[in-house]
Nucleic acid binder design. Structure first.
Length: 467
RNA sequence: GACCCUAUCGUCUAGAGGCCUAGGACAAUACCCUUUCACGGUAUGAACCCGGGUUCGAAUCCCGGUGGGGUCGCCA
């Protein structure tokens, strides 16, 4: 049974890198008919917040990455961790350490000065034949894991291949703090063991933790899961993503008018490939996804390609769905009431010309509220000849059947009668009706706008002087 | 600094020794389509980090260099 998990720490929102990690872990489980587990790693009581938990869950929901089990919270598993710590202590595989934070800092400083890798020196590590100093009174010790000192730890990483680290590089890391709460490297192991995780798919930044965790698995007599480390995603500018720089919440993409399927497709393709396939559904992705084709090197985020995918999905999106999205956005501007425009028709008209939902809502704007083209714009487009043609067109519009072919015919008659070419009349008409010189085919716009609005707007533009 | 990882067009990538005069996609440029602007279509330019090996033959394997990234917390 394949079991994967996504294990974010709730210290912030779900960003694009986390989303991709979740996506790959999810797809891997789906691909193999396994289970995808959501686990909230909130052992850092000081930094974890319920709001962040909610933000992560909301982000996952927006993307449609449903978990089969969980969410599990590490803070609710403290008794279990305590039990395992006690077990390790009893077996002599962990020990209390009374070194203070200050002493540790001094130690690291000295090591750095000597050009060494800063690490705990094992001063409280019990060894046969070694006498430890008496425990300082009043100090609550941390518990450290007794890491093997010889040999190497080696594993076959699902994306990076064989990775080998010497135990001499590792120190005895803390598994429980002075206050008794367990720490990350310890909890992950106990959880992955208890939850029978078969494939640990996570960010690149955990590669260095893996050998320690493997040693812990061994000490616990637990079976080893497979590990796969995804390399990181760089910003559009090639710089590392951080809260300060470019790392935005996936929900920000929702705000910015992206469709979740576009974001998902983009993320799927960022760091993984299936030959030349660029556009595919999540069902296809799940059928194809494999670790072998995940790239080992870092990938740079490219907003333009995301935009292209978004435009692609917009073109084939259901008009009713788009109408709801437009409505939601218009509501945000207080424009959702007092109109009888069929927004689904507006969406059909514009969905292949815009890049995102916000642009779509902007395009719908003049359908819902009469535009106010500036005097300059009107002056620029409404020459006397144009006004004349417009007036006669207005006359035709009053009595004609309101259907696109009929409207097109009326337009052509007017053109012929006034010796004009289509753009000469269509562009001014666009300015008058929508407040801008570009739009979809003018006859289609006319039809969706409706007779009343069209006539009102032409009248308003021509003013009382013309009749 | 130490350790670990990594390196194909500007970007995402295909490529698992001969199929590569290196393929696709985004972006760029040009043209076509056209009722404007888009969309769409066609075409063009654009890359194997460097140096050594191994081999009849290397983008592909090995070593070194360089660049990039990660980690070195009683954070996760």
């Amino acid at each position: 049974m394949i079991r994967t998990r996504f294990a974010p720490s709730p210290t912030g929102y779900l960003h694009i890198g986390g989303a991709r990690t979740a996506l790959y872990a999810w797809a891997y489980a789906r691909r193999h008919g396994g289970a995808f587990i959501l686990r909230i790693e909130d052992t850092d009581l000081a930094r974890s917040t319920p709001a962040a938990v909610q933000a992560i869950i909301d982000g996952m929901r927006w993307l449609g990455l449903a978990h089969d089990e969980g969410p599990f919270y590490q803070t609710q598993r403290f008794p279990r961790y305590k039990e395992v710590v006690a077990q390790l202590l009893a077996a002599g595989q962990a020990y209390p350490c009374y070194t203070s934070a200050d002493e540790l800092e001094q130690l690291r400083e000295a090591q750095r000065a000597r050009g060494e890798k800063p690490r705990y020196d094992g001063r409280w590590r019990p060894e046969p034949g070694r006498t430890l100093p008496p425990a300082p009174p009043g100090v609550a010790p941390v518990i450290r894991f007794k890491n093997p000192q010889d040999g190497v730890v080696s594993w076959e990483d699902g994306v990076k291949g064989r990775i080998t680290v010497a135990n001499a590089e590792l120190d005895d890391f803390v598994i429980a703090r002075g206050d008794g709460t367990p720490t990350y490297n310890f909890c992950v192991v106990v959880d992955d063991w208890d939850m029978r995780i078969s494939h640990v798919i996570r960010g690149d930044d955990h590669v260095n933790n893996t050998p320690r965790q493997i040693n812990l698995f061994h000490a616990l007599g637990a079976p080893l899961p497979n590990f796969a480390h995804l390399s990181m995603i760089l910003g559009d500018d090639g710089q590392k993503l951080s809260k300060r720089h470019g790392a935005v919440s996936v929900l920000q993409y929702e705000e910015d008018g992206y469709l979740p399927e576009a974001v998902l497709n983009y993320l799927a393709r960022l760091g993984w490939s299936h030959g030349d396939e660029e556009i595919f559904t999540m069902a296809q992705f799940c059928a194809w996804f494999d670790l072998d084709h995940v790239t080992a090197s870092a990938a740079q985020f490219n907003t333009e390609k995301l935009n292209w995918l978004n435009a692609h999905y917009l073109k084939q999106a259901d008009p009713a769905r788009l109408a709801a999205e437009i409505e939601r956005r218009l509501a945000g501007q207080g424009l959702d009431r007092g109109h009888d425009i069929d927004l689904a028709r507006v969406a059909t008209l514009y969905r292949e010309r815009v890049g995102n939902l916000n642009e779509l809502a902007d395009a719908a704007h003049p359908f819902v509220r009469a535009p106010h083209p500036s005097a300059e714009l009107l002056a620029q487009h409404l020459s006397p000849a144009v006004r004349e043609a417009l007036a006669s067109l207005r006359g035709k519009f009053a009595g004609v059947a309101w259907e696109q072919p009929v409207l097109a015919a009326a337009l052509k008659e007017t053109l012929a009668a006034h010796g004009m070419k289509m753009p000469q009349l269509a562009i001014p008409l666009r300015v008058v009706l929508l407040g801008q010189p570009q739009s979809p085919a003018i006859d289609a716009v006319l039809e969706v706008l409706g007779r009343d609005r069209v006539c009102e707007r032409i009248d308003a533009a021509l003013g009382p002087a013309t009749s």
